[in-house]
Amino acid sequence: MASLGWQVIRALFGAGERLAPGIAGRAAFELFARTPNPRAQTEGERKAVSRAADFMRTARHHRLTVGQDCVAVHEFRPDAGAGDAGRVLVVHGWRSRTEYMKTIVEGFRAAGFRVFAIDLQGHGQSAGRQLTVMKAVDALATAAQWFGPFDAVVGHSFGGAVAVAAVAGTVKTTAPLAAGRLVLIAAPNSLLDIVDGFARQIGLGSRSREAMVARIEHLAERRLQDFSGARQLARLRVPTFVVHAPDDRKVPADDARAYGEAGGHVTLHWAPGLGHRRILSDADVVSRIVSFARMPAQLARAS
């Protein structure tokens, strides 16, 4: 049964559909883009951040101005004696932060990579309370101006969808992000599906939904269909490694299959039993990701 809060929200949007669908659609967009309250962490989230405190102290912390927001980028140098394998940009998902990417960052450091892990707007140590694909792509582009080019870009969940859009140059106001490799972990394929799922969750009527979509497309200067990850990836031809758990309850396995069918430059690896978050700390998954990033380009395309 839905909580009282969600029942109230659904009732309000139901009334908005009848009385003022345009206003309801714009309000739905604001709710959709609203980032989680940083003070409302769950006990599990607090523990995860606490466990990563020593890890975060090893980083050099940067603050970048992105639009009206201040975005944190955490730079992790390669382990002593590991050499210089290149540069990697790591992007977390929604309601996540750099601390949750700890095992992946450590895997790249041990292999000699310099890692730049970004906290997207409204997450981790970054300011703001609104996040959209467009804002996130802008943040990645700003990080690339300061710290790129990147030999690989690694994105989890929402961060994976953002990484594809950034490298594909789908946001018209932002230049494409140069990347030698892409790694997508539990990444959603369709922004339109995400919007429709959210609309159903809050009980948004058809006219209000149309107004919400129109607001997003106005800001993006693109149709929502253009943010199909598989369609963008098919055009890119950048060697890409897709990792997904068949049991992921947040992002359907069909999304990974769609990515896997984008072309011969895409390698799909299934990680059964790891769900949506545990996949980030699995030693075998991390080893495969790092190995893919180090693979010569011609072999990565053929793998």
Rank of each mutant, 00 (worst) to 15 (best):
S281A: 12
F13G: 01
D84K: 15
V195F: 00
T240A: 04
M212V: 03
A302C: 13
A186D: 10
P252S: 05
R294T: 14
T240F: 01
W146Y: 13
A186M: 11
V154K: 00
H269F: 04
E261I: 12
R237N: 12
Q145L: 14
I9T: 08
D119H: 02
R97N: 13
R215Y: 05
A234S: 15
A258D: 14
D69R: 04
R301A: 07
R257M: 14
G16H: 02
V137Q: 01
G44R: 03
A214Q: 14
F241E: 10
A234L: 07
V91W: 02
A256Y: 00
L64I: 10
G124K: 00
L192D: 09
I279P: 00
H276D: 04
F13H: 02
A258K: 06
R207Q: 12
F227M: 07
A28C: 11
I216A: 04
M134D: 06
R277G: 08
G260C: 13
H265T: 06
L31M: 10
V90H: 00
R95C: 12
A234E: 12
H61F: 02
R215V: 06
E99P: 07
Y100F: 14
C70H: 08
A297H: 10
D151A: 12
R278E: 12
V195R: 01
M101I: 04
R237H: 09
D151E: 13
R97Y: 09
S96N: 07
W146A: 15
V88K: 02
L120G: 01
H61C: 06
V285N: 00
H244M: 04
V195G: 00
E99N: 09
P272G: 08
F113P: 02
V153S: 04
V73D: 00
E106L: 01
E75T: 12
Q41P: 05
R97K: 12
P252Y: 02
Q121I: 15
V66L: 10
V266G: 03
G260L: 11
V91L: 05
H123R: 01
R51L: 14
F150A: 02
L64P: 03
A168E: 07
P38Y: 01
V238C: 09
T267H: 06
G128T: 07
Q225H: 14
A53F: 02
T132A: 07
V71M: 05
A262K: 01
R77C: 09
A20F: 08
S96V: 11
G205F: 03
V133L: 08
G205Q: 10
D196L: 05
A20L: 14
A27L: 15
F198D: 05
A127Q: 10
S281K: 12
G148N: 07
G263H: 02
D69H: 04
A52W: 04
E45H: 08
I23Y: 14
A48H: 10
G205R: 04
Q121T: 15
C70E: 13
R209K: 05
I185Q: 00
W94S: 01
H62T: 13
A141T: 11
K102W: 07
L299P: 11
P176W: 02
L236F: 10
A33P: 10
H244D: 05
G93E: 00
H156V: 12
T65S: 12
R87V: 07
F32A: 00
A117Q: 11
A52R: 05
Q41A: 14
M295K: 10
T103G: 06
K250C: 10
A220L: 12
A53S: 06
R77L: 11
E75H: 10
A230M: 01
S50I: 11
G16A: 09
A82N: 04
